[in-house]
Design a binder for these strands. Sequence first.
DNA 1: TAGAGGATTGAT
DNA 2: TCAATCCTCTAC
Length: 193
Amino acid sequence: MRLKPSFYLNPDVTVVARDLLGKVLVTKTPEGKTTGMIVETEAYSFRERGCHAYQNRKSARNSVMFDTGGVCYVYFIYGVHHMFNVVTNTHGLAEAVLIRALEPLEGIDLMQSRMGVDTIKRITSGPGKLAKAMGIDREWNGVSLQSPVLWIEDRGIGPVPVTKSRRIGIDYAGRDANKLWRFSIKGNEWVSR
DNA sequence: TAGAGGATTGAT
DNA sequence: TCAATCCTCTAC
């Protein structure tokens, strides 16, 4: 069952990040449908330095973060990778959850062909890789999670055991880099390295 | 308008 | 540990 718009409006982005674990991300493209269970996320808020929208800094790139929760925020980085985020909270309060790893469920053949490999292991274990495997690029920026080509659904997996840790790659954020805002399913073999 | 650097990855 | 590689932001 597809997550309702209200799910994304929670004023605490860390709660959404945790609750997304065990949910299933679905994309549909002309090539086909791919799905994967979310096993690792990170929370970002305008209130802290690790975030693109820190201190409400708004730009052409991150403007989608200021939208009402329930759309996706996709950006290109390092000249190589796309990052897929879920925007949360109400309009004007820029918060988002970065999806860092999935457990592939359906459309695995398609994911493998997009990645140019024939193994299932580690094809979605990292934010850059899962965006590629799911066929997501910056053309998807701002797309609603209620759209017919992109959504997240609850398959009744229920509460999962959660591991909290520091976020990755934001050493420049000073004290905020120490926040335990990375969430993963405890013991899951599909989390990023 | 030029220059620096980034919410990463995979190979060395 | 380092290069790939390009878009965005900042400063001039």
